[in-house]
Design a protein around this nucleic acid. Structure first.
Length: 311
DNA sequence: TCCATTTGACCGTA
DNA sequence: TACGGTCAAATGGA
């Protein structure tokens, strides 16, 4: 995949990402100390302000990273290619036999994404700040309620590959578990990406910070994933402190990853021919704990290198 | 008539 | 081979 301007773009992108992460790490550290000694200190920022700043920092980082993912571009191309294939089929026939022919011809029409950037939230509403179109519903084995499938309405005009799956919770039918797959690449300026309006900062935290959620101490992950946000809100101060520890360590680890990334950039820049479009993210980060947990970016074949480049 | 949703069938992955 | 994700024709509402 030839993306000539990709190195320069990455360079600026990297700087921005690093700046955002450093900022986020700084705020997280402040928050941590604030939680350890919750005295009235009017000089420093309040916890809420700090949380907002951390969230903004990570949102910005994610946004930058996703907007420069070549994989997203290639994905859109793949989509439009597939679509055109289907459209040809669609327009060429009509009548009784069409359905069967069409069904046969559908082979290769779509490619299921393998591992993409996914994260889940549990909420009483399925609404968020994006427009979604429902494209399917499926009964799931051992699940009481069907799962609904949504794609971004900008899929075809802007090639946005974001999708979400919504499933009603079995134990609490009022609540929905929403799984987001992929980040929005559409440019809907009026609607800030991944900001849940009716949520408090911690809910938003879960929405935005899939990678951080992975860093939530074991045992809390499940609760964060499967229980309602109310439960999350009731987390004790100690838990919050743990969380800020996690954020801090996430920032620190990510920082070292990025430094390594920066150091090895020439290798990154050389496209590896003949690779198999594998799960770049996991290969790339399989060397450290952080990697397997964080930055699980899936470049979907566009960012064509693997771990061997680093060795 | 257009657009969103429903639904049955197809297809990829484990 | 079963399950789950996606497609696209059919359907219904505005």
């Amino acid at each position: 995949m030839g993306t000539p301007n990709w190195p320069e773009k990455l360079s600026t992108t990297r700087k921005k990402v690093i700046r955002e992460l450093v900022e986020g790490q700084d705020y997280a550290t402040q928050l941590k100390s604030l939680l350890h000694r919750p005295t009235e200190d009017h000089e420093s920022l309040s916890t809420e302000e700090l949380v907002s700043k951390i969230l903004r920092s990570f949102s910005e980082t994610l946004s930058v990273l996703s907007s420069c993912e070549p994989g997203e571009v290639s994905q859109s191309q793949a989509v439009s290619h597939a679509d055109s294939h289907c459209d040809v089929r669609r327009s060429e026939d009509s009548g009784e036999s069409r359905k069967r022919l069409a069904a046969k011809d559908r082979r290769g029409c779509y490619k299921r994404r393998k591992t993409s950037h996914t994260w889940a939230i549990v909420s009483h509403t399925t609404d968020d700040d994006h427009e979604w179109r429902k494209y399917g519903q499926k009964e799931i084995l051992n699940a009481k309620y069907p799962r609904s499938y949504f794609r971004c309405t900008r899929k075809y005009d802007q090639g946005c590959g974001a999708t979400k799956q919504v499933q009603r919770m079995e134990d609490d039918p009022q609540m929905f578990q929403t799984t987001y797959i992929g980040h929005h690449t559409c440019r809907d300026i009026l609607k800030a990406p991944q900001i849940i309006t009716d949520s408090d900062p911690w809910e938003t935290f879960l929405v935005n910070s899939d990678t951080m959620m992975m860093n939530i101490p074991a045992g809390k992950q499940d609760r964060a994933l499967s229980s309602s946000t109310t439960t999350i809100k009731q987390e004790s101060l100690e838990s919050l402190s743990d969380l800020t520890d996690s954020i801090s360590s996430f920032g620190t680890n990510l920082w070292s990853e990025l430094k390594a990334f920066e150091f090895l950039e020439p290798a990154v820049m050389s496209p590896k021919t003949g690779s198999d479009n594998g799960d770049v993210g996991s290969t790339m980060y399989s060397c450290t704990d952080t990697c397997s947990l964080s930055l699980d970016m899936d470049f979907e074949g566009g960012f064509d290198f693997d771990g061997s480049e680093f060795l």
